[in-house]
Design a protein around this nucleic acid. Structure first.
Lengths: 228, 228
DNA sequence: CGCGGCTTTGATGTTCATCAAGTAAAGTGG
DNA sequence: CCACTTTACTTGATGAACATCAAAGCCGCG
């Protein structure tokens, strides 16, 4: 399932590593492998040793933790060019969360010690990496605070708008997650999510067809998201 | 309020920057200033431009956001040798949260561009910094997830144990925060916090005297924290 | 002294989780 | 390909958890 990297260097440099020197880009691409996963595949299991530094090239994945009772808590949903490796990557030896594919996904992976080696030798690269990792972690913290302060209606409106504007950039989209996963992300129950979606439907704010969602009244959802 | 740095280099190197070269430690200490704050002082206001990279040398501070309605949401409480600057420091130009002193505190601050300069030139230092920043951010994310999954009793038990074991290392301690601030940290109401504390008191799990708390039944609190 | 902020308790009501039951959809094995 | 099982989705009824509202005491500070 791992294939040689074929993503072009231009993409790599614009998306991530403006500070790469020519020889480093070459080295990086030489060593980097792509791994393809299907929807539902578990990519990383909590507790596994950290082997790779990786980012999402295409698709969609969820980062989550499983508690003693077997219940999952979704930390965040990562989009292309988000890092799958969060900051723990440099301070931990083992993954503190699991990762699985919500859609067919391609990850670009590079050996963690090689990554560290490059970072050690190139301060600019380190800084660049820190900026990017920092932005991703910050986003997670911010989002967590945003979700926490909302009531159930606000939470559901928030995540619908996130999918619509943040991820798919369209008023019509297929939810990449089950109702249960939405609940695990928002800190609600599955029934609560379903009930809220149904209410939005009855109030003609959205149209629902299985996992397909159409946002009919964007402004109202924004209001609910801000207020609730 | 700013004075020349007098913290010794040993402390600095063991706590943070094992990878500092001699000349860098000197440069760092040359440029670094200490700032003293009194309980209640606001150290950083959300929205201000980022001037310094800083860490807490002594005391206790809270990081928080204020919403449109004027309500505060406490992101985390930082202990000595935690960074006050989170990761945003390298990806943002302005602070995304406020910081204020819960106890009299001393911050060590260094000009942010100087910091970047050192990081650019010394990859090992960058890596070191990333490890530390990563650990702090990770801790915040983990803690946020821990709090989110608990009910009110579990939340309050969790924070009491955090103060007892994580911060003061004692069964008796003075709460550094008001009931309202606990509520802002846990995502509860002030009354809810008070009520829960009273219940713990009635069940003889804790003794309360104003802000002084004594933990009487550690095991029971642990149980409530794990279960609830 | 009096004002405002912090703390506390009680009464009330809303929100939301839980439980139960049923339908639809999707995967599994013969 | 179809019976079978499992998982996802949906709705309603119920009750518990928790926020909100109200009132009063306390303390520090100008």
């Amino acid at each position: 399932m791992a294939t040689k990297c074929d993503c072009d260097q231009y993409e790599l440099r614009t998306a991530f590593f403006q500070s790469f020197r020519e020889d480093e880009v070459s080295l990086f691409c030489e060593e980097k492998v792509e791994k393809a996963y299907s929807r539902g595949d578990i990519i990383i299991r909590e507790g596994e040793g950290i082997k790779y530094f990786s980012y999402l090239r295409s698709g969609l994945v969820k980062l989550y933790k499983t508690d003693a009772a077997g219940k999952d808590q979704i930390i965040t949903i990562a989009c292309p060019f988000d890092f799958v490796s969060l900051l723990g990557i440099f301070s931990e030896t083992h993954h503190t969360y699991s990762v699985s594919a919500l859609e067919d996904s391609i990850l670009c992976c590079i050996d963690i010690s090689l990554m560290k080696g490059i970072a050690m030798k190139n301060g600019r690269f380190s800084m660049n990496l820190m900026e990017r990792l920092g932005a991703v972690s910050n986003k997670i913290i911010q989002e967590s605070l945003e979700i926490r302060k909302r009531n159930t209606h606000g939470k559901v409106a928030y995540i619908l708008l996130k999918f619509s504007k943040g991820i798919y950039d369209s008023l019509v989209f297929d939810l990449p997650v089950s109702r249960r996963e939405i609940a695990e992300n928002l800190g609600m129950t599955t029934e609560g999510v379903i009930r809220t979606l149904s209410e939005f439907r009855k109030e003609k704010l959205i149209r629902i067809n299985g996992r397909e969602i159409e946002i009919l009244d964007d402004a109202a959802l924004e209001r609910i998201s801000s207020f609730g």
